[in-house]
Design a protein around this nucleic acid. Structure first.
Lengths: 207, 207
DNA sequence: GTCTATATCGGGATAGAC
DNA sequence: GTCTATCCCGATATAGAC
């Protein structure tokens, strides 16, 4: 049949509501009502909110993991780095509810916590590998200590910047996050690349 | 009488439990039990969790605001900046529950949201003023655009770094946050100051 | 697979005695 | 101010019919 399976529709709807209102503020009843199905039916597919969140996390993981296996053999430049970050952030923004209540979720669902940590570590490794590649080409001039810290800082920004924007009652734009990260990396680039990046960053903010 | 007023004891206890377990995971009943008073009594003093959170926020505001009125007339150097950040972070850490569920809290309690935003803005102004002062003394070399972004980045870090550490199942140390911010500012310092800072930062991480 | 109806449970609110 | 006892409600869980 052409109709999407109910299970998938539930996940889609839950994702939407979670993202809009925050996971703790959405009840299973609301999800059922929004979908026009009964609470009992929803319970048939997902025994509560917990498995729902886990189900959505699996989707997220599937979407993100392929990106964390970057083709390092090719020669890349700073532009590629921004593109890469943009793709990451887009996927994270699609599941932004996961990051709005990160400590809470990871605290309540230890399984989720472990898997998220492992995902974050994969992300850090990738970010570090790409930076190392840029350094090997002399695009990046900073020392290793500083770069290690830079990776931490980029990760922090990717994880929490949308949240930060929301707290400040701003729109929550992926472009802004990428801009922030560009400005974060810029001081570590060699002077020429640095100026170029700061200019591109300014344009990025509008688009 | 020598005994602390019940109202204050409730606030103290709530703060402790909120910080340990996260505000959403603590019930008024738990607080009452922990204190050895009845739920009814607690309700007599605070009609629910909402006024409790507000009450704690007021305390936090009182503790932080004096710090956000820095003596800009005196000549300061980078060292003073780190000390200042350290003091800020210590106070924030004392009320860390506020930042563990920031979007949630500000979403649920619009009043709190407004006041937190205003506090964040005061913080940003102060951070910017101090950076400008360092720039006036040629300690800082970056352009204004970059410095504006740096303020955003420092703010983000102060607000979310403890949370980040918690998600990674680390200890949640104020020193680590200050270290992160130092490494964030370092690339904007003139070469001499930069090296000095990176060295001090390394030591800071242990202490 | 999907529905309706009901049970359960936990947290918050509240009355009234002391 | 503080206690005990109870009520209320929203959310989740579950049984059983269709």
């Amino acid at each position: 049949m052409a109709r999407i399976k109910t299970r998938e529709r539930i996940l889609d709807c839950a994702l939407q509501l979670f993202n809009q209102q925050g996971e703790p503020n959405v009840t299973t009843l609301e999800i059922a009502n929004e979908l026009g199905i009964s609470p009992g039916n929803l319970y048939y597919h997902f025994h509560g909110k917990e498995p729902l969140v886990l189900g959505l996390f699996e989707r997220f993981e599937e979407a993100l993991l392929p990106l964390l296996d970057p083709p390092l053999e090719v020669r890349l430049d700073a532009e590629d780095y921004w593109l890469f970050l943009h793709l990451i952030m887009e996927r994270m923004a699609q599941y932004r509810f996961l990051f709005q209540d990160l400590s809470n979720l990871t605290g309540r669902l230890p399984t989720l916590g472990r898997r998220i940590r492992s995902l974050i570590n994969a992300l850090k490794r990738t970010l570090a590998a790409l930076l190392a590649s840029l350094k090997a080409q002399d695009q990046v001039v900073s020392e290793t200590q500083a770069l290690g810290q830079l990776v931490e800082q980029i990760t922090l920004t990717l994880l929490f910047s949308l949240d930060y924007q929301r707290v400040l009652a701003r729109e929550g734009d992926v472009g802004v996050v990428v801009y922030q990260v560009m400005m974060l990396v810029a001081p570590h680039l060699r002077p020429g690349a640095r100026r170029a990046t700061e200019q591109v960053a300014g344009k990025y903010l509008q688009g």
